[in-house]
């Protein structure tokens, strides 16, 4: 049996959102399982299943993945910025 990641699109134009997993031997039966498991009560317009084996994960640790907010030195302050502001960039 294979684990399939399930994605649901609630309305046309919305992004597909991950809602969980199902276990099934192939894509057809995974779709059958996902429909009754995740959208039997809440309507949707799209349903994807993706073999977990086909998902590629980034291997970086969290401090590398979350480093974006520390890039204050990339802000361009222009001419005449006060010294204390310039000092804060370092």
């Amino acid at each position: 049996m294979t684990i399939w990641e399930v994605f649901v699109q609630t309305e046309g134009g919305d992004p597909f959102e991950h809602v969980g997993q199902v276990e099934a031997p192939n894509g057809d039966t995974a779709t059958l399982a996902a429909k009754e498991h995740f959208v039997r009560r809440d309507p949707c317009v799209g349903l994807w299943v993706v073999d977990r084996e086909d998902v590629r994960s980034a291997s970086w640790p969290p401090d590398v993945l979350a480093s974006g907010h520390e890039k204050v030195y990339r802000r361009s302050l222009g001419r005449g910025a006060p010294d204390d502001v310039l000092a804060g960039r370092l």
């Binding site: 199902v22 276990e23 498991h37």
Partner: peptide, 8 residues
């Protein structure tokens, strides 16, 4: 034979 089938 599986939880998923039982739900269906």
């Amino acid at each position: 034979p599986s939880l998923e089938i039982n739900v269906a």
